[in-house]
Protein backbone atom coordinates (compact mmCIF):
# COMPACT_ATOMS: atom_id res chain seq x y z
CA UNK A 1 0.00 0.00 0.00
CA UNK A 2 1.20 3.47 -0.83
CA UNK A 3 -0.28 6.48 0.91
CA UNK A 4 -0.03 9.71 -1.04
CA UNK A 5 -0.54 12.37 1.57
CA UNK A 6 1.36 15.32 3.05
CA UNK A 7 0.77 13.91 6.55
CA UNK A 8 3.60 12.15 8.34
CA UNK A 9 3.26 8.42 8.86
CA UNK A 10 3.23 8.90 12.64
CA UNK A 11 0.16 11.15 12.31
CA UNK A 12 -1.76 8.37 10.60
CA UNK A 13 -0.43 5.40 12.54
CA UNK A 14 0.19 6.50 16.13
CA UNK A 15 2.34 4.24 18.30
CA UNK A 16 -0.05 3.86 21.23
CA UNK A 17 -2.78 1.26 20.91
CA UNK A 18 -6.06 2.72 19.76
CA UNK A 19 -8.99 2.86 22.15
CA UNK A 20 -11.67 0.24 21.81
CA UNK A 21 -14.28 1.74 19.53
CA UNK A 22 -17.63 0.19 18.70
CA UNK A 23 -18.14 1.79 15.33
CA UNK A 24 -19.84 0.06 12.47
CA UNK A 25 -21.64 0.75 9.27
CA UNK A 26 -25.29 -0.35 9.29
CA UNK A 27 -28.28 0.02 7.04
CA UNK A 28 -31.14 1.93 8.69
CA UNK A 29 -34.37 2.50 6.76
CA UNK A 30 -32.42 1.71 3.62
CA UNK A 31 -29.79 4.36 4.29
CA UNK A 32 -26.21 3.53 5.09
CA UNK A 33 -25.26 5.10 8.39
CA UNK A 34 -22.03 4.97 10.30
CA UNK A 35 -22.97 4.35 13.93
CA UNK A 36 -21.32 3.93 17.29
CA UNK A 37 -22.72 1.37 19.72
CA UNK A 38 -23.27 2.83 23.18
CA UNK A 39 -22.80 0.90 26.40
CA UNK A 40 -26.57 0.49 26.80
CA UNK A 41 -26.83 -1.22 23.42
CA UNK A 42 -28.30 1.72 21.50
CA UNK A 43 -26.80 3.00 18.31
CA UNK A 44 -25.84 6.63 17.87
CA UNK A 45 -25.44 8.14 14.41
CA UNK A 46 -21.95 9.34 13.60
CA UNK A 47 -22.29 9.95 9.90
CA UNK A 48 -24.84 9.46 7.17
CA UNK A 49 -23.41 7.93 4.02
CA UNK A 50 -25.64 9.19 1.26
CA UNK A 51 -25.27 11.19 -1.91
CA UNK A 52 -28.83 12.56 -1.78
CA UNK A 53 -28.61 16.05 -0.25
CA UNK A 54 -32.25 15.82 0.91
CA UNK A 55 -31.36 12.95 3.24
CA UNK A 56 -29.25 15.35 5.27
CA UNK A 57 -32.31 17.48 6.04
CA UNK A 58 -33.96 14.48 7.71
CA UNK A 59 -33.35 14.79 11.44
CA UNK A 60 -33.53 10.99 11.80
CA UNK A 61 -30.05 10.77 10.37
CA UNK A 62 -28.56 13.83 12.05
CA UNK A 63 -25.26 13.04 13.78
CA UNK A 64 -25.79 12.31 17.46
CA UNK A 65 -29.31 10.94 17.02
CA UNK A 66 -29.90 7.72 18.90
CA UNK A 67 -31.48 5.10 16.68
CA UNK A 68 -34.28 3.11 18.27
Amino acid sequence: MILYTPLAETDIFPNEAGENVNRECVSYNGKQVYVERNNDGTYQVLQLLSTDPQDFLDSTYAPGTILK
Partner: peptide, 9 residues
Protein backbone atom coordinates in the same frame (compact mmCIF):
# COMPACT_ATOMS: atom_id res chain seq x y z
CA UNK B 1 -9.06 15.69 1.73
CA UNK B 2 -5.49 15.23 2.90
CA UNK B 3 -4.87 12.48 0.38
CA UNK B 4 -4.56 8.80 1.13
CA UNK B 5 -4.24 5.51 -0.67
CA UNK B 6 -2.96 5.99 -4.23
CA UNK B 7 -4.88 3.13 -5.78
CA UNK B 8 -8.14 3.95 -3.97
CA UNK B 9 -7.81 7.58 -5.08
Amino acid sequence: TVGGDVEAG
